[in-house]
Design a protein around this nucleic acid. Sequence first.
DNA 1: GCCAACGTTGGC
DNA 2: GCCAACGTTGGC
Length: 165
Amino acid sequence: MSKSSRRFWLMKSEPNCFSIDDLAAMPDRREHWDGVRNYQARNLLRDEIKVGDGVLFYHSNIPSPAIVGVAKVVREGYPDFTALDPTSDHFDPKATQETPIWYMVDIEYVATFEHPLDREALRRHPLLAEMGVLKKGNRLSVQPVTFEQWQTVLEVAGLPHLVEV
DNA sequence: GCCAACGTTGGC
DNA sequence: GCCAACGTTGGC
């Protein structure tokens, strides 16, 4: 098989909450992507996102929102235990062991861009201007990215060798 | 801080 | 099942 079946995603995080530096600083450079409380994103985490998929790490809710680096999926959808934890900010009283409702995946740090790709840079590029993250009102915290967009982001970021990582 | 867009909730 | 009210997201 010449074409791999892996897919590509963009995941948003507020860096004040969890940044790419935080991911890189984890002991094994891995962390679970918890706290997603939107059904559309939940369905992606539970059903679509597979081990080996590529992740564009996006920092939101800051003066200059941007794609700041790359990660990869190392564990597929499993119940988001923070929904069961009454002390968690992400606690959901409707979630139970039997019906967890919310799911998460684990990702592993791959690289940080020397120069983050901000929204202006994305808009400037014909292939990237179509990305969901640029669309007005798009609030999905996990969203699909095409291979072409993935490849282009890595090329623009000066890390073309990571396209196949 | 503003506000548009969106998702969820709950009365009816 | 409709829809208004509300809360949240997130760029600017």
